[in-house]
Amino acid sequence: MTEQTRSTPAYAVAHLRQVGVGDAIIEYLTRIDATLAPYGGRFLVHGGPVTALEGVWDGDVVVIAFPSSGAARAWYDSAEYRAILPLRLDHAHSVAAIVEGVPEGYRATDKLAALQGA
């Protein structure tokens, strides 16, 4: 793991579509906060209104912040989260990913420099 990986935040991002809100999803929502706490996870976005600027957006967005990609992965792989994950997977069509953030002060030209090998 690089120093940047340890020092930059990471985000668990999910695009949820066709969520069947019933007992299983209610249980999932009731239990998820307790799974996040040990890993420093917190909701930044949880299904709020989406204003599509390009194309058609269907569904909801969830973004959970973690202090690092290691913490995000440890949460996702934890026994506590794995115990409730089927409640969501079996009742929603979704895609999910962990994405690394960028350090404080990052600028788009930093990416350009990396792409050009500078």
Rank of each mutant, 00 (worst) to 15 (best):
P103S: 14
G55W: 07
D33F: 06
G48L: 10
L87G: 04
E104N: 08
Y106W: 15
A71D: 09
R17G: 00
Q18D: 14
V56S: 10
L53Y: 07
V19Q: 02
R82E: 07
A34L: 07
A79P: 09
G41A: 02
H91E: 02
M1K: 13
L36E: 05
D77R: 14
D77F: 08
A12G: 14
R107M: 08
S68N: 08
D33K: 12
L89V: 04
L29C: 11
V45S: 13
M1A: 15
I26Q: 14
P103G: 12
A92R: 00
A72H: 05
A79L: 08
H15G: 07
R107Q: 15
G117H: 11
H93Y: 03
V13R: 06
V102K: 07
Y28G: 06
F43H: 06
V13M: 12
L89R: 11
E27A: 14
Y81S: 00
P49N: 07
V56A: 11
F66C: 05
I64F: 05
V99P: 01
I64K: 00
H15N: 13
E54K: 05
L89T: 06
A113I: 02
T51L: 15
A118Q: 09
H91R: 05
D77A: 15
V63D: 00
A12K: 06
D77M: 14
A72P: 03
E54H: 07
P103C: 12
R17F: 03
S69I: 04
I26E: 11
L53N: 13
V63W: 01
E27H: 12
A92C: 15
Y106D: 07
P67H: 05
P9Y: 11
R6K: 10
L112D: 03
R73D: 01
L29M: 11
A10N: 02
D60K: 11
E3L: 10
A96V: 11
R73C: 02
W75C: 02
P86S: 05
Y76L: 09
R31G: 01
T109G: 10
G117S: 08
R73F: 10
Y106A: 15
H93R: 06
R88W: 06
T30C: 04
P103F: 15
G105T: 03
D58P: 05
A24H: 08
G40R: 01
A97F: 14
I64C: 02
T8I: 09
E104L: 14
R107A: 15
T2D: 11
L112M: 09
E27I: 08
Y106S: 10
A97I: 14
Y28L: 06
S69C: 03
K111E: 09
H93Q: 12
A65N: 00
S68L: 08
H46T: 02
Q18T: 03
R42H: 13
A108Q: 14
L115K: 08
F66G: 02
A92S: 15
P9I: 01
A83H: 06
H93E: 10
Y11M: 06
Y39C: 00
A96H: 12
V13A: 10
R6F: 13
G20I: 01
G47W: 12
A96S: 10
P49Y: 06
L29H: 11
V102N: 04
T30A: 13
V95R: 07
P67M: 04
L85R: 10
T8N: 14
Y76V: 02
I84V: 13
A65T: 06
G101N: 04
R82C: 09
P67R: 04
G40I: 00
A37I: 13
A118H: 09
V19F: 04
P67W: 07
V61R: 08
V61S: 08
P67K: 01
